[in-house]
Design a protein around this nucleic acid. Structure first.
Length: 446
RNA sequence: UCCUCGGUAGCUCAGCUGGUAGAGCAAGCGGCUGUUAACCGCUGGGUCGUAGGUUCGAGUCCUACCCGGGGAGCCA
């Protein structure tokens, strides 16, 4: 067993010490291990060198004393430049002076490749420069922490829906026409015709919900809007659950449980990463059910009280959203919107025909709209009237109309923007930090 | 598309009412046995975004354009 494990991990000498990861050093105290990684930073004096090794799971300081390793190995240690790939053998020691609690007393240093002058130095850089080097920036502590949290958020979301009987049914990325008609679409050649990159999988999820009951899709979506703000990407990931036999209240209850479950999971498993990000934990810990639910009209009244007058029927701007969110210490649902402000498929409010049963969820701290959704109309007659009122091409929606012809039921769902959600959890300044390789109006590289 | 701020060394920036280019970090060399963005000394490093213009003289003033940050609209 031991031998096969050693062979599986490969490069360590057949008879050498076991290979360890920085995050597992606690299991190897007072034992010799092999660590494989990259030199994150180093400090040295004439007789002692401190090599900060990064291996993807964490960083650990490796103490190399000339008196212990001899002239030759000490010279090798001092030769390694920032981000050189190295193998270090040494004894794991518990040490309260070390940030992670452990450090390595080095017995051997092997350089795999000496890195050229690394562009990202330990000192400060501008975002533009860092984004030009995003492929390298991923190695730094901050992006590393954010993207590890992103990974956990994705797993948390998938587990949340799987636990509740949702089937994952992904929507296509090439689409024949606009899902919502309004936003700008990326157009691409599709053999002898045109196709568009999806801006939402929702209509397909409605079809899937009538087949599977409870479904969700999760994938990239594309918006060709010329938006240059900290909340916008041209390519972002959206998770869209849809439930048959459900209404607006069901959608809000689901969204609320989802947010709390995922934040709890991040708080349980990523304290160190949140610390790296200097995130104010109290702001996340107070995210508990229930979230306040206010109507569009009530939101208007709050804005009015704050001296911001908005004409009835208008959508809110970014600053309005921040002002509204500041009224609450947790996310807030705003529901029952003027028909004109929302998409054509929204179900009208039976108690006020000017309104539709749509909902937005605003995150605290100015992170804005994270969720948009609502109850979809089940009526073919009403749907047709709205397709016409919004000036949409009826022929593109024939299949969608079918959903109202063959066993139409009340159904509801929402979409959550992954990067805005992750950005909020991590407290990032801009959503582009919440995706590995951001695509914005001005960035298609690297 | 509009508003606004910016573009000077590899990076982050300073450069006053126009007078001939500067710091820290990084790189190279040397020193230091407990450093935490280590520290100390020395060295090299510039088409001041581009093109015009004003001037004896432009990084600095004017015009146009290019690129980027932030915001508006639109959205998750």
């Amino acid at each position: 067993m031991k031998r096969s494990a050693k062979e599986r991990i490969g490069l360590s000498g057949k008879d050498g010490p076991p290979k360890a990861l920085v995050e597992n050093l606690g299991e190897f105290v007072d034992r010799e291990v092999l660590l494989e990684g990259w030199l994150y930073n180093s400090r040295s004096s004439g007789k002692i060198a401190f090599l900060l090794l990064r291996d993807g799971s964490g960083t650990v300081q490796c103490v190399t004393a000339k008196a212990d390793v001899g002239e030759e190995i000490f010279a090798v240690a001092r030769q390694a430049t920032q981000e050189s790939s190295i193998r270090i053998t040494g004894m794991v020691k518990k040490d309260d002076r070390a940030p992670g609690g452990y450090e390595i007393m080095v017995s051997n240093v092997e350089i795999v490749q000496i890195a050229e002058e690394y562009p990202i130095t330990p000192k400060s850089h501008g975002t533009s420069f860092l984004m030009d080097h995003r492929h390298l920036w991923l190695r730094s502590a901050r992006p590393h922490a954010i993207l590890r949290i992103r990974s956990t958020v994705i797993h948390g979301l998938r587990d949340f829906f799987a636990d509740r009987g949702f089937t994952n049914i992904d929507a296509p990325i090439f689409t024949p026409a606009a899902c919502e008609g309004t936003s700008t679409l990326f157009e691409t050649d599709y053999f002898d015709s045109k196709a568009y990159l999806t801006q939402s999988g929702q209509l397909y999820m409605e079809a899937a919900a009538l087949a599977f009951g409870r479904v969700y899709s999760f994938g990239p979506t594309f918006r060709a809007e010329k938006s240059k703000t900290r909340r916008h990407l041209t390519e972002f990931w959206m998770l869209e659950p849809e439930m048959a036999w459900a209404d607006l209240d069901d959608a809000m209850a689901l969204a609320e449980s989802m947010i709390v479950a995922v934040i709890d999971r991040v708080l349980d498993t990523h304290m160190q990463d949140l610390e790296t990000l200097e995130r104010d934990l109290s702001k996340l810990e107070r995210i508990q059910k229930p979230f306040p639910r206010i109507t569009y009209d009530e939101a208007l009244a709050i804005l009015e009280k704050k001296g911001k007058t908005i004409e009835w029927g208008e959508d809110f701007g970014g600053e309005d959203e921040t002002v509204l969110a500041e009224e609450f210490d947790r996310p807030v649902f705003i529901h029952r919107w003027p028909k004109e402000a929302k998409a054509f498929y929204m179900d009208p409010d039976p108690e006020d025909k000017r309104l539709v049963l749509g909902v937005d969820m605003l995150a605290p701290e100015g992170y804005g709209e994270i969720i948009g959704g609502g109850q979809r109309t089940a009526s073919l007659e009403y749907l047709d009237s709205q397709i016409e009122a919004h000036g949409l091409p009826a022929e593109a929606f024939e299949w969608y109309r079918d959903l109202r012809k063959y066993g139409s039921v009340p159904h509801a769902g929402f979409g959550i923007g992954l990067e805005r959600f992750v950005g909020w959890i991590c407290g990032t300044h801009h959503v582009r930090e919440a995706i590995p390789f951001p695509r914005t109006m001005n960035r298609l590289y690297p």
